[in-house]
């Protein structure tokens, strides 16, 4: 089967029960996406599948024929980090960093669908991404900043 990941086409032969998370981490060595709960409870494996956010741990690879996947490794822009990534750095929105890839992909999907989210929108959209370090206030601040137009690549 063919899968386009971060703009690159891959040929994969996933086992029938293989998850997208296993394919990304084990076959494609894209280890930025993390395994935490393995049952769609924590959001650490969040990726974009044809532009929609999915839990890679609950997605079967075999069902993704021809799909386009974006992982944390594909969020950055060609020559620079994405605005969300720079906002996460500036606002200290990553402590241990283990949930961070999923947080950024989820925030990316939120802003793509809703470029002007309210604070309540941000809280709701991000409520499926758990962080045990308790970085939520800083994550919220970072997303708010990007939504307000800060950290834009074309900003002066």
């Amino acid at each position: 089967m063919h899968l386009t990941v971060n703009g690159r086409v891959h040929e994969l032969r996933p086992a029938s029960a293989e998850t997208l998370l296993e394919s990304l981490r084990d076959s494609l060595a894209l280890t930025g996406t993390k395994l935490v709960c393995d049952r769609g409870e924590c959001g650490a494996c969040t990726v974009l599948l044809d532009g929609e956010i999915v839990y890679a741990c609950l997605t079967l690879s075999a069902a993704c024929e021809g799909a386009t996947v974006t992982t944390i490794e594909g969020i950055a822009e060609p020559d620079t980090l994405a605005p969300l990534q720079r906002a996460f750095i500036a606002h200290d929105a990553a402590q241990c960093g283990f949930c961070t890839p999923g947080q950024i992909v989820a925030a990316h999907a939120l802003l793509a669908a809703n470029p002007r989210p309210t604070d309540a929108d941000i809280r709701e959209a991000m409520s499926g991404n758990l962080c045990r370090c308790g970085t939520y206030p800083k994550i919220h601040t970072a997303i708010r900043a990007v939504a307000n137009g800060e950290f834009r690549t074309d900003a002066p």
Partner: peptide, 21 residues
């Protein structure tokens, strides 16, 4: 000062034990 390893964390480059092969 922003944490100095933040870029590794926000790009997925940071290698954790489960990422060791």
């Amino acid at each position: 000062i922003p944490r100095m390893d933040a870029a590794e964390k926000v790009t997925g480059r940071a290698r954790y034990t489960a990422d060791i092969t």
